[in-house]
Design a protein around this nucleic acid. Sequence first.
DNA 1: CTCATAGTTTTTGTATACAATCTCGCATAC
DNA 2: GTATGCGAGATTGTATACAAAAACTATGAG
Lengths: 235, 235
Amino acid sequence: MNAPVRNPKSAAGTRSDSVYAGLRRAIIEQALMPGDKLTEDVIGERFGVSRTIVRTVLARLHAEGLVDMQPNKGATIAQPSLSEAQDVFEARMCLERQVLVRLAERVTDDDIERLQKHVHLETKASEHDGPAAIRLAGEFHILLASLSGNSVLARYVDEVVSRCSLILALYSRPHSSDCSINEHQQIIDALRAGNSQAAIDAMDHHLKAVTDRALLSSTSDKHRDIRSILDRYAS
Amino acid sequence: MNAPVRNPKSAAGTRSDSVYAGLRRAIIEQALMPGDKLTEDVIGERFGVSRTIVRTVLARLHAEGLVDMQPNKGATIAQPSLSEAQDVFEARMCLERQVLVRLAERVTDDDIERLQKHVHLETKASEHDGPAAIRLAGEFHILLASLSGNSVLARYVDEVVSRCSLILALYSRPHSSDCSINEHQQIIDALRAGNSQAAIDAMDHHLKAVTDRALLSSTSDKHRDIRSILDRYAS
DNA sequence: CTCATAGTTTTTGTATACAATCTCGCATAC
DNA sequence: GTATGCGAGATTGTATACAAAAACTATGAG
């Protein structure tokens, strides 16, 4: 039923990793929308694991701010309030600035090339694959953070970027990526030139543009059936 | 066996919260030392809960970087490498600066008073209660972050400060608090005067002093028996 | 028609059972 | 004496069982 994936990545559980990855991707790509109910049985059934595993995964996603949990009422995709959203953006700005400060003084040609390659990927995906484009836009920032060489910074950036996907799903037009690829290119160019201040300015401008897109749209339907969606992410 | 604590705090589980709090405090106060084995059965027995609960708690502590987990080998109190330690300190510096930037422009007299009260607590504890002094020193920074009004910042500061306790346990003299109370007072004074730059400078100096205390001492014994320690934290 | 209510079904919280894996001691060979 | 296997016991990974709580449905009163 499920491929015997061996992902010797990091955490405790072993089988939970694939469920975690799938669910997370579904959220990031905005296939699952804020407010959607995450029933343990449903997820377990679709991914071919028991509730024990699902529960671990949901707790993890909750810790990252991607799902809300209420005692005795279960889990839903998080619906950050406007104030939470602002907090996330401010923290993100602070963290990504530090990433650029580090990168400016230690980025290698190899790093630049990887970044450039990623932007090409983004460009390609932007033309036909909506969901992947959203994910890739975020992953550019995650790649930056990971290249910075500070694992703590990398983890936190990963988290805030993911939460931003959620925020955009809530407050912006549906399926909008949170990044114009052009601005990513500007950051790379500034880094290549060794101009840390320009890179930071570009990032500031970039994130400010994203923040301003808060326009409050639909709060989603009552009880969507997530079964068919999960199937696409249970690979 | 266990007090029926009702802690309607935040997360998913209900009973797990008290185990989480107890275990966390034991780590912060350096009663449990880096490397100590955290056997699920032992913890469950001491806290009067099943392994299911313990497992949730350990996963949560792992996500926060306080415990290491290896597949099929279980959990131990985290032993951050020197490089991880540096990453934590750098992230902490970055986050706490932002906290002060925010505080400088919105701190109230009431906030100042709470901070001042906390430092008094620290002073009192420093004279007789070693473990509590360590915890209170960290909690000063957590209080600062929570007063900043940014929940994301607050959560991350909480995390890095906790990890710093661990780092100090590993690399500094045993039972040393990571803060001289005097420096906390300087930060309060700067905030009271509305001098944000002075506050940030004081914080920079403060954290730099902490960072420099990395001196690498003992890596702890092979297999300590944590049972008696847990009893003190299973209240 | 709206509201309240009782009973049924669904879903969550927790404990426990069982298999897979690891640890450690002990015997044996070299 | 050191190293190599082997086996008993301990520990973890996962599924399942069961009780408590919530959600839903349908019925009846006003």
